[in-house]
Nucleic acid binder design. Structure first.
Lengths: 165, 165
DNA sequence: CGCTTGCTTCAGAAATTTGTGAAGTTAAGG
DNA sequence: CCTTAACTTCACAAATTTCTGAAGCAAGCG
């Protein structure tokens, strides 16, 4: 079996996983191509692939790769790396750090909070709607703090489970 | 000033808030109409509106209201209520409970976890990619537990801040 | 210096999504 | 019962999004 050398993998099975995981991401709101590219990177042993490899693996054009990667980089879910002495670029999923990006919806939460503060002001803090909105605002502020603590507990938990990196 | 009677609000200002908050929701991935309907409900003093009121407020067809409400009900962000002795329906945002729905992405997380478990199996738990995926899986499992605890702390915090409901 | 490789940008075709009007369904009220 | 009010479903038109091929640009290499 090819498992002995540790390098061969069933491309069929990998592709099935890539597509099925990408489908979940799409369902959660991520655009199709970024989702597929991300899933492909996640399942790459090196944790990184070049643009050409991605294009071949997913059967998509260089343009599609470019667009997807821009999206993912913006969301801090992949890092772009220049291969020294080549103009190839590697796109890397930073192992333990990509899912931290998921919890770093901070900028989104901030904007929600701003909108809610405006809402409380517009509607009046003493109106029923204003009070309801103030409570919602308090919730977001609370969650924001809690998430930071949770991530710190996670790092601790991870180090104990998988060993410090 | 109309503020003295507590019932009049500047429809202009309210509408501006509705649209601006809806825009934030859209940016976060919610479809346009559900976002607008939800924002309108959130800014209604009663916390509820009828289909007709929503249609007039947002200038959309009954069909659009129907579709939006179905989406929101599915996501547990609004409750449908039948007005007794009438075939009007009220759509209500359940004040303190709607944002709990936000954290109840449990079903989504569950599906991610299932996909990740399949991924670990497909790729082999001893491969680098398999290990990375196993760590991601552990992260989601961890977060799932943490969120439950966080919500319980929130309810406590809320009761102390706003008084028990 | 010019060729070549590799990514990016652009314009457009194709596919998907969205919202509407119209017809359909259900149930209250006479 | 029959009428009518209120929501829902359906089919289609419009708008938006998505992906591609082609052209453009930048950087290594001979």
């Amino acid at each position: 079996m090819s498992a002995s050398d540790g390098t061969e993998r069933d491309p069929e099975a990998v592709s099935r996983f890539v597509e099925s995981f990408a489908a979940q991401l799409v369902e959660a709101g991520m655009p199709r191509m970024p989702a597929r590219v991300f899933a492909a990177l996640l399942s790459a042993d090196a944790g990184s692939l070049t643009s050409a490899e991605l294009g071949e693996l997913l059967r998509i054009s260089p343009a599609a790769v470019s667009g997807a990667v821009r999206y993912l980089a913006q969301a801090h879910m992949v890092a772009r790396e220049r291969e020294p002495g080549s103009r190839r670029e590697r796109y890397r999923v930073r192992g333990d750090q990509w899912y931290e990006a998921l919890t770093n919806r901070e900028s989104i939460m901030k904007r929600w909070e701003i909108a809610l503060r405006e809402g409380v002001a517009s509607l009046g803090p003493e109106t029923p709607a204003g009070r309801r909105m103030a409570e919602t605002l308090a919730f977001f502020e609370f969650v924001e703090g809690e998430i930071a603590e949770m991530m710190s507990r996670w790092r601790d938990h991870r180090d104990r489970t998988f060993g410090p990196s």
